[in-house]
């Protein structure tokens, strides 16, 4: 399920059961602190997010980017942040559309078109994700997080959305797309000392190449060794076994927890 803050309409992450994409509400840490000053407005608006998601789905099915742009801008005007729209509404739609293909209710062509629609929408609005930040990212030369796909995974939408989420948190991030060769990756890690390496795996067949890659990184000397998080469709659907030396993350909350536990080298 998709958890949103009832008061400030911030996306809080996913909750089990992950395959259920209904929107549920909680309260974020900031709103909890300010609980006494909050009104009931948030609760009154709780159906609105589901409506936005439904509208985006409808626009996506007909490939209507203009409508999607309008829907997103309306949502922004109502204090929903762009990054939360992508993390909490659009990304789950991508998952849902994949499931619809699996269940035979849409064709592979329709699935491709929907993904392309989401990519175009993201392209149109991604500049607004970071534009809303209060400050420039600290120490812009440094990269704390590297994001990439497992070798063979050519779907870049997830890591691009995730990169925008990190940028929104003012965490220096770099997307490695297309997936670099192992030697280039090792060199990047040795030079940049990132804290985290997040790898997205879509299908189980990408697993062997991913294991080789992880083994190479694990062989690096200790201080140069980022924590490795592996997520993506194959992890969410349980299609890959655990990989020694990595954390499998099924949702953004696990990424946040791991990031919080991860000290700077």
């Amino acid at each position: 399920m998709l958890r949103w803050c009832s008061y400030c309409q911030k996306f809080l992450g996913e909750a089990e059961p992950y395959e259920d994409l209904a929107i549920t509400h909680g309260i974020c840490a900031t709103c909890k602190q300010n609980l006494r000053t909050l009104t009931n407005q948030g609760f009154e608006d709780s159906g609105r997010l589901q409506a936005i998601q439904n509208q985006l789905m409808t626009a996506g099915r007909s490939g209507d980017l203009e409508a999607a742009d309008r829907i997103v801008r309306n949502a922004i005007a109502n204090n929903v942040r762009v990054i939360d729209i992508f993390m909490g509404l659009v990304a789950p739609l991508l998952y849902q559309i994949g499931e619809e293909w699996r269940k035979g209710s849409i064709t592979v062509a329709e699935e491709h078109r929907f993904t392309s629609y989401c990519e175009q929408l993201f392209g149109q609005l991604s500049n607004q994700v970071t534009a809303s930040r209060s400050t420039a990212p600290p120490n812009a030369d440094r990269v704390d997080v590297l994001l990439m796909n497992a070798p063979g995974n050519r779907h870049s939408m997830a890591i691009r959305i995730l990169a925008a989420w990190f940028a929104d948190q003012e965490i220096p991030v770099r997307v490695l797309n297309p997936t670099p060769a192992i030697d280039d990756l090792v060199s990047l890690i040795s030079q940049g000392h990132p804290r985290l390496l997040l790898i997205s795996i879509a299908l189980s067949e990408q697993y062997p190449a991913l294991v080789s890659l992880v083994e190479r990184i694990a062989a690096l000397p200790g201080p140069y060794h980022p924590k490795i998080l592996v997520g993506g469709y194959a992890v969410k659907m349980n299609l890959v076994p655990p990989i020694s030396g990595t954390y499998l993350v099924t949702d953004i909350n696990s990424v946040e927890v791991t990031l919080g536990n991860c000290s700077c080298p």
Partner: peptide, 11 residues
Amino acid sequence: TRMPVETATKN
């Protein structure tokens, strides 16, 4: 058949 049983089953 090159994958662990649990993974093969899930797939």
